[in-house]
Amino acid sequence: MSNVPSDLKYTKTHEWLRTLPDGTLEIGITDHAQHSLGDLVFVEVPEAGRKLSAGEPFAVVESVKAASDVYSPVAGEVTAGNPALASEPEAINSDAYGKGWLMRLRPAAGGAAPALLSAAEYEKLIAEEGG
């Protein structure tokens, strides 16, 4: 069974979002996603300052099996990419919602509210996908 913490928001493309105290968003891929990908061996994260539109690929996570793009659920400006993943990509496998975060993003003002899923809705989605 995949781990789906109740305090996070999710997307249909298997990203998670956490709102930090300063209003920025921390974003990564879900436990279900890391499990589907298998052992991660290479991760490319964005540089601080990069501007992203909603739905734009911002990271590449590469496992032994395949390379996958990760999409930004919201528009905004990157405040940090996780520097630790360059040498420790397996942190996504072992701690997807903690040490495995991919980027932090300041959402663009006045952007359209993204269609995010609650933990319960995301659990339903992965159950339907056979996860």
């Binding site: 298998g38 052992d39 061996v41 032994v64 099996k65 496998n93």
Partner: peptide, 8 residues
């Protein structure tokens, strides 16, 4: 099966 646990 592609893997039983961790492929690595």
């Amino acid at each position: 099966p592609l893997q039983y646990g961790s492929q690595i």
